[in-house]
Design a protein around this nucleic acid. Structure first.
Lengths: 343, 343
DNA sequence: ACCACGGTGGAAAACACTTTCCTCTCTGTA
DNA sequence: TACAGAGAGGAAAGTGTTTTCCACCGTGGT
């Protein structure tokens, strides 16, 4: 036991062939090896329990089978859904997925990218809304350029703008569609849980919703837009703040489902019924949250599919010269959490 | 741009020192290097943008900074919660997490373990219920032994029994506690969504529940135990089947929260109220599902903490000779989905 | 004044592969 | 019968580190 590792050299010796021949048999080299030797080598490898040393291979080939996946928080179902799509695609190709989580720190994001570069990762999928902080984006873009300069490929799931292929949900259009849908239901006064001010995704959804209202001649009172964390608890807390100040909205739009979940909990705690007293809508259509009661009206994004697409952009075919952008249009899903306003 | 990589040799040359000295400066070697040369080297490294080649380091040191995490399905909140704990711990130690998903295939599980071994991963955390299939367990145990024989460490989150440290939820006791709790509420007739027959976790929870009933002199009708997938849809479908045959239970125990979610959806579709017509209880206390209505009575497992503990077992301190088992006792959380039976 | 020794630096081996280049042996053709 | 060329095997160089081993220098003790 613990006799250490079996090396290719030992396999070659056991099979009575050269190291080169053994290598050609074990990996699928272009070079031909006679059937006789080929069988000897595979037999020896099996018998000795040979397993190639991945680091040595990476070093010699200067290319690894590692693929990075960078998300903010893997326990957030938004990210884990996307991650699921990415894993599916990478595992089909027998690649190894490295998971990095940033906790929304730009610094960690750059560091992770560097780590992946150190490992000669073949590609990396970067998931998560860009910040509106231009400085941070520039640093990230530079890090991406370096990564690509060393032969790595990069795809993002977020806003376009980084020097990489991007799968981008059309947040603006989705939110506008939702707004129109809710207006058609009869709503005129809206409140919005707008999430963090410096998060592009949150901002785009707010803007899209707002601009649809404007086009319809509706305004959005300043005190009806409240910012807060992009989380369930952020939604809860934002809703408490919103309701504390008193407001006249008939419909509450939370810029993501997780916040909407917090909102519904807060409203329940306040004794308000949904959609009786107030309609609530979200965005994303998180699978795990589809069983909430009342079921959430939302904008469906094909999260897992988006992850798969991003992985495909980063791995399949030839690397593109110009960043490609795949825009994903969300689809309004009406469920029980919204209804025509009472009066 | 894209001039390729900067190697340590280039750094050494640029700094006018030997390769050995450069190496000693860059990594924290025990060997002393004079302040003068040390500064020259760090300056050169910074100037050239040196980044060590991780594969070369792994090869030379014969130990990598990779840590494996193997789960069945990362989009399942049970696993993503545990994964979150594992990532937290590994990232604190600047290790790189490799995520593998098995889709509940034993074969894939073994293959992933081999891949991790090929990469000289320092440790692996294996999450997910063992099967009752002895053959598969034996193969897995053997693979674990080989991994450990090559210096890797292993920790599991599951049933004890594998040759590795294990964080193990006390499913039997938790389910028994829950049963006693529900009996105290006045329930006498139970139905159980028992999950797959070949999954230890499911079986233990069923057994624990059952044995508590037996101790109280209660039986469990055969037709009130229905098996099915360990998923939301499995819960839904199992419930439909259960209700189709007609039954006299006042309380339904689903052996995990995800199935309980499906059960509640099915009951809603059938026009049954929870807990009015039927109480429902789950197991796990998945954070994302805490906002269901009615809120689910369940047995809380500290999932993220369990992940963290497992990572700690696999990484901290000295490897144990004998497998250590950390048993985690769940805690019954009563919420609105259960109530005393109607009559 | 000599010697032993601790502290530094460098040359080179080791790590486990891949791949280039060379050699040798056939086969087929002139 | 010779020779070109293809096919197959092996020696060895390369991949970027770490680490061992050796050499050297200066210091302090005798």
């Amino acid at each position: 036991m613990g006799a250490g590792y079996v090396t290719l050299e030992q396999v070659a010796e056991h099979a009575g062939v050269s190291l080169a021949t053994a290598s050609r048999v074990i990996n699928g080299s272009t070079r031909q090896v006679s059937e006789r030797l080929r069988e000897k080598v595979t037999a020896s490898a099996r018998e000795l329990g040979y397993l190639a040393n991945a680091s040595a291979q990476t070093l010699a080939r200067n290319s690894s089978s590692l693929v990075g996946l960078i998300v903010h928080d893997i326990s957030d179902p938004y990210f884990s859904s996307i991650a699921s799509g990415v894993t599916r695609h990478t595992e089909e190709q027998d690649l190894v997925l490295v998971l990095g989580t940033t906790s929304r720190s730009h610094h960690r994001e750059s560091r992770l990218l560097a780590t992946l570069r150190a490992h000669r990762a073949r590609a990396v999928v970067l998931v998560g809304s860009r910040a509106t902080d231009e400085e941070a984006n520039k640093r990230l873009a530079k890090e991406i350029d370096v990564f690509r300069g060393q032969g790595g490929r990069v795809a993002c799931v977020s806003q376009p703008g980084l020097p990489a292929d991007t799968v981008s949900p059309d947040n603006h259009a989705g939110a506008a569609d939702l707004a129109r849908h809710l207006m058609a239901q009869g709503h005129r006064e809206f409140a919005i849980l707008a999430g963090p001010t410096d998060l592009s995704t949150a901002r785009e959804r707010l803007d899209g919703f707002h601009s649809a209202l404007s086009s319809a001649g509706l305004g959005l009172a300043h005190h009806n837009v409240v910012h807060g964390d992009f989380t369930r608890d952020g939604g809860y807390e934002s809703t408490r703040r919103l309701m504390a100040t008193g407001n006249d909205a008939t419909c509450l739009f939370a810029v993501n489902d997780v916040m909407a979940t917090g909102a519904m909990a807060a409203l329940r705690d306040l004794g308000k019924s949904v959609p009786g007293d107030l309609s609530v809508a979200g965005f994303d259509d998180i699978p795990t949250l589809r069983d909430l009661t009342p079921a959430l009206t939302t904008v469906r994004l094909p999260l897992e599919e988006m992850g798969r697409r991003a992985a495909a952009l980063a791995l399949d075919g030839e690397p593109a010269q110009e960043p490609r952008v795949v825009t994903v249009r969300g689809e309004v899903v009406e469920r029980a959490s919204t209804a025509p306003p009472a009066c």
